[in-house]
Design a protein around this nucleic acid. Structure first.
Lengths: 190, 190
DNA sequence: GACTTTTGAGACATTGTGTATCATTTCTCG
DNA sequence: CGAGAAATGATACACAATGTCTCAAAAGTC
């Protein structure tokens, strides 16, 4: 008779890690849509049927990877939300150190509903922090959405161009080009 | 004996139009990735095999739709490139009148390489028009990319929220929030 | 109205998905 | 260390979707 199944079987951890690594590598090599479960399990060095013992399908594996990536992001920005300049630089540093999973995240936008949910969540958080200027031409939802999404677009540009400027420089650019104009135009001074 | 085959057979035009309409409608209903060729041909009211007499596959049909949509865009903005404010408003008016195909364009980003190509092309055009400020913190490629991409993100937001503000208002917002800051920060006064 | 071309319908080979089975390997825990 | 439990690999299978092909019928052109 045995105890309740344990969560730390080496074999399980190994195959799951092999699968996530294979998914990331292959997505960057030939694109997520072009991948088959066979491609992934071959690259991971596991049997085809074994794949389905861990994930119900390809999208399920992707979700696992993306949720991990996004979770790290949220933890990262939580404590420093009050200091925008510092936060932005921190984000670029984190992206640099995790560039592969972030690239996957950005290349699978249409597949996963995670990114839109993050946009909504972040915009909401921003609207609760800043006070809208009632006389502004620009609705606060638009300003908040613009800030979030434009930062992400700049991250994408930066990754696709092999990160030609250091994170601090990108932080300054983002603040000058996006954050400061949006705050000045749509919100009241704090 | 007959003449050279003619390009205006009613049957051909009808099936092609039915297919493009079906693709647009179904993509908005359940997403492009979830569609099968059978779905599309059923909705279009044509036989399954007939689909392949016009398009080699699903992506090929999508490309036809997107190229038409993008072609109209390029024609639209070509004559008025010198007047940014007017151009932006014009773009929003055009989007309003063609919202379904534009929605499809935005929802199939990962599938089609057309949008990235448009980004590159537009950025290039912008860089040839404006004079970079050599003393600026912000590289001109980043400023140009930011302008193009942010406008598109705002169009996407506008469409997803059922176009709550008129095109002129959106034009003013885009100019204040995106165009003017980017020009002021990264380029020399003209 | 004769002739040409497109269409619809069905059969077919091929590829990928997800499930099931069973012998073998690998791990955990006492 | 060694017994029992659990995960794995290999294979076979049913199913769904793709893209090709053929032929009779329908709809176009001139």
């Amino acid at each position: 008779m045995s105890a309740i199944p344990i969560l730390t079987d080496k074999r399980i951890n190994n195959t799951r890690r092999a699968l996530t690594n294979a998914l990331i590598a292959l997505t960057l090599e030939k694109g997520y849509d072009a991948l088959t479960v066979r491609d992934i399990s071959e690259r991971a060095g596991i049997g085809y049927a074994t794949f389905f013992r861990h994930f119900s399908d390809k999208d399920s594996l992707l979700t696992e990877v993306l949720e991990g990536t996004l979770g790290e992001f949220l933890e990262l920005i939580q404590p420093v939300l009050n200091d925008p300049e510092r936060t932005v630089t921190l984000v670029f540093e984190h992206v640099k150190q995790n560039s592969d999973p972030v690239r996957v995240l950005l290349r699978t936008r249409n597949v996963s509903p995670l990114l839109p949910r993050i946009f909504a969540f972040s915009s909401q958080a921003m609207l609760e922090t800043l006070k809208p200027n009632p006389k502004s031409l620009i609705p606060p939802e638009i300003a908040a959405h613009h800030m979030i999404v434009s930062i992400l677009e700049l991250i994408e540009w930066w990754l696709e161009h092999e990160m030609p400027y250091p994170p601090e420089h990108m932080g300054k650019i983002v603040n000058a080009l996006i954050m400061q104009p949006a705050r000045k135009l749509a919100f009241l001074e704090r």
